[in-house]
């Protein structure tokens, strides 16, 4: 990967080096008596999971509930400890939030191939939901946009991969 940048470097003048990998996530508004913002985890995996890169985690410093983000916990969370890999931050309130993962080295150095972005949300006194968005890496001339609508704990999730 690094080789590629080095060889391309002289050709790139105004263009940024990194491909863009941006996710819009809608945290649904819930009409419930007891509301807790969902814990949300983001990661990238390939079909046989020989590659699995954690991208980010939203939680409120209560590690006790991390196991409830079940798939993330099994795939990667349980073999990590704080600070968790990727862009980590506090939980988000209802509404649409944009997260740009472009600056993550682990993402930029992914070998070329077909991948899936997995977004998993788990809410205390609520449910759990996983959505998956396929993409090709690295970004191509034509930007890729994938959109999935969650049914319960996630609203619309949009992935944009572009040069």
């Amino acid at each position: 990967m690094r080789l590629r940048y080095l060889t391309l470097l002289p050709l790139l003048t105004s263009q940024a080096l990194a491909d863009t990998f941006s996710v819009d996530v809608e945290v649904p508004r819930k009409r419930v008596a007891e509301y807790h913002a969902p814990y949300v985890a983001f990661w990238v995996e390939n079909a046989d999971r020989s590659t699995l890169e954690p991208l980010g985690l939203w939680y409120d410093d209560q590690e006790k509930w991390l196991k409830d983000i079940r798939q993330w916990w099994r795939r990667t969370g349980r073999s990590q400890s704080a600070p968790y890999d990727g862009l980590t931050g506090a939980t988000r309130s209802p509404g649409t939030h944009t997260v740009d993962f472009s600056k993550l080295d682990a993402l930029q150095s992914l070998p070329a191939g077909e991948y899936t972005l997995v977004v998993e949300a788990a809410r205390e006194v609520g449910g759990r939901e996983v959505v998956k968005l396929p993409f090709r890496w690295p970004a191509e001339e034509t930007p890729q946009q994938q959109q999935v609508k969650g049914t319960d704990e996630l609203g619309t999730v949009t992935l944009t991969v572009s040069q």
Partner: peptide, 13 residues
């Protein structure tokens, strides 16, 4: 039988 309250945890407890 034994019955554990939890089998998988993410914080010392």
């Amino acid at each position: 039988w034994l019955l554990p309250s939890h089998t998988t945890v993410s914080e010392p407890q």
